[in-house]
Design a protein around this nucleic acid. Structure first.
Lengths: 168, 168
DNA sequence: CGAGTGAGTTCCCAAAGGAAACCCGCACTG
DNA sequence: CAGTGCGGGTTTCCTTTGGGAACTCACTCG
């Protein structure tokens, strides 16, 4: 089983999934994001095996998404904390949560967010960074970007051409 | 291995991951989202085994994220298409992509989006649905929602209390 | 008639995941 | 000063999953 398959793809989604694209990593990151920062606490909360947790934490640290900080020596004990990159990745967790809030809990979610800016309990919506309007699937169309490679992904190229043909 | 572990958790992130939380499902959904709609085309584009693709497609259809539409009978042939629920889930793909664009491609992404509303090439940003301001991790704090269950997730409850203590 | 296409299914083997036990250094406790 | 507990792992063993490749089936095209 060659795990190399994903990171080699010239695709942003695939590259990101190489970091959190398995059954547990995203949940581990979620725990760290809300402040559950120790090995045993995470293991107890999620109920995954200690072996797998060790691997996942090392993976997150490797990818600079999380840092392992000693909070005492003798014996060495550690906290796991988000990095700047990890906070960017937390936007993915937010998207996962919003979907789950809507479709699995029907608007009565287990966790809500208070926006410190305005003080309201709110949800995040995706907005165009140019015009500020809310964006939904179908409101935007995909185009080849600077690093697109037609050789590497001919099927994607074809699909983009189809879309371009429809939308002029 | 009891796969029941994730969907049973009272957590929106976990519930969503039960749908797309493995190595391939999100990529399959991405292909369908951009219009690569047939079995062989998806298999060829992603290079995953046909067996696993069969399983993943069935899983997506089970969860109503994708529909299997016959485009001919005799022999039966099918397109896979996004549902309304699938389009909501595509917001997760968007978040994955934005992260990859920034951290794996350094701003020269393989795919860009043209917002039909304003005509510009843009990126999506998360905004507060109350005040419209852009939201980043740290700009909002998590609180217990209507369906939070302290019994089921004591560690999460503790973490929320800690945060509440800091932010009054 | 033979080759091709689309959508899977089947078989076998290697890799990943789970459970539970073990380990290590230290700090209390009686 | 032996015993117990805690934090953070590692090790062992066994089950499940994933990959590769070949096979099937129904129809079409040349």
């Amino acid at each position: 089983m060659q795990r190399a398959s994903l990171p080699d793809q010239p695709c942003s989604v695939a590259r990101t999934l190489d970091i959190i694209g398995d059954r547990w990593t995203a949940l581990v990151l979620r725990d760290i994001a809300i402040g559950i920062s120790r090995f045993d606490a995470i293991q107890g909360d999620l109920g995954l095996s200690r072996k797998v947790l060790t691997q996942r934490l090392a993976h997150l640290v490797d990818h600079d998404v999380v840092v392992r900080v000693a909070y005492q020596d003798n014996p060495p004990r550690y906290d796991y904390r988000m990095t700047e990159k990890g906070n960017d990745l937390a936007m993915v967790l937010l998207a996962l949560q919003q979907f789950g809030d809507k479709w699995a809990f029907g608007g009565a979610p287990p966790i809500q967010w208070r926006h410190l800016g305005c003080g309201e309990i709110s949800t995040a919506v995706a907005c165009c960074d140019r015009c500020g309007e809310q964006v939904r699937p179908g409101d935007a169309i995909p185009l080849r970007g600077p690093s697109f490679d037609d050789q590497a992904a001919p099927a994607v190229g074809d699909a983009l051409d189809q879309i371009a043909a429809v939308f002029g």
